[in-house]
């Protein structure tokens, strides 16, 4: 199977043609550098994304505190992570970078605040 994708490792955005068999990358064409190869492998075998969203607060100066995962998580877990975040109510002050949910969905990734709240 040939999968077409755009390498997003840098702003050039090479159009890749990736030959995939059984979930494994066989061959990559269209990449102008080695990064395209790594990107195609990652994208085919285990695409990862940083999740950024907001957490509802109670009794703090801002209604919503923006948050991110401190590492990229599997793309197919984004919506599950959103559902988990929706259950969180933050009721204590946080600093930027402070953990709000430890090890979210057992993904070995923490949800951290990106804005302070008090």
């Amino acid at each position: 199977m040939i999968r077409k994708m755009t390498c997003i490792d840098c702003p050039v955005g090479c159009q890749l043609e990736v030959e995939v068999e059984g979930g494994q990358v066989i061959k990559v064409t269209g990449n102008k550098c080695e990064k395209g190869l790594t990107y195609a492998r990652q994208e085919v075998e285990r695409p990862l994304r940083i999740l950024t969203t907001t957490v509802l607060t109670s009794g703090l100066n801002v209604k919503m505190v923006p948050v991110r995962t401190n590492k990229p998580i599997p793309k197919d877990r984004l919506l599950a992570a959103m559902a988990a975040v929706r259950q969180v109510r933050l009721d204590h002050p946080v600093k930027v970078g402070e953990t709000i949910v430890k090890d979210i969905l057992n993904l070995d990734t923490d949800l951290i605040a990106t804005r302070e709240a008090f």
Binding site: I50, T52, T53, T54, P66, R68, V96, G97, T114, R115, E116
Partner: peptide, 22 residues
């Protein structure tokens, strides 16, 4: 702007908007 993509040039880090502002 809670998404990432800020600061790659100035801080050499991939920050969210609120982190960049902070």
């Amino acid at each position: 702007c809670i998404h990432t993509g800020f600061g790659l040039h100035h801080f050499k880090e991939d920050l969210t908007g609120p982190e960049y502002a902070d």
